[in-house]
Amino acid sequence: MTDKLGFKPRNWNSHPAYLSPDYKSTALRSPTKPLVPLAQSLSEITGPVYGHESVGPLDADLTRNGATAGEPLGERIIVTGRVLDEDGRALPNTLIEVWQANAAGRYVHAADQHDAPLDPNFFGGGRCATNAEGWYAFKTIKPGAYPWGNHLNAWRPNHIHFSLFGPSFATRLITQMYFPGDPLLDLDPIFLATPEAARGRLVADFSLEATEPGVALGYRFDIVLRGRNETPMED
């Protein structure tokens, strides 16, 4: 009865520290006291259940879900991969929400002040769900880099934001996917806040197999959520 098993802890060798001084906004927004250990109960091993029923017909095609009078500008890409747990088990029918900038590096968000054009045919938000083997895919436009105020001449590398629930409240993850070979990665305080050995897990691989001939380049990005403990929780 795997439903009754708790989850392995957050692996702090994989995740950034809350306080990462080079990313300046962490200074006033990081907890300063140690996290209090909490034994998992039904409250933690349950969680919101979202899957295919939450995905509308165009949600997984960002080249079409914001189109008003044509196609968005930029390089079409397909992002695909598997969602697994730490034991390599596929996580089926699990929702993935994504959001990103357009090809010019501009978000549709009202608070984005970057002086780059909005694209009337690109929204930048979408969602998809994994199939029975844990595979997901969505089509989009490769996001552009954009400047931000962290330090002089700071630019975020190209990235797509991902949000996943997985099977429980404990497996919740929000992360960012980066692109291979991006020279901005070595300069980005958010990416660099990640422990060095874990950074590669945030960078997609170019995939000819996922590339749709004549249409869109493919990128492979697998996501690993916390796995199950081997022994049942105490009641």
């Binding site: 730490e86 993850l173 929000i174 960012q176 996501i223």
Partner: peptide
């Protein structure tokens, strides 16, 4: 096969149109 957790990253300032539209 043992896999390692995908690192967390910040939600950033511009989540609203994707997560709370």
């Amino acid at each position: 096969m043992t896999q390692k957790q995908t690192p967390s990253q910040t939600i950033g300032p511009f989540f609203a149109y994707g997560l709370t539209p």
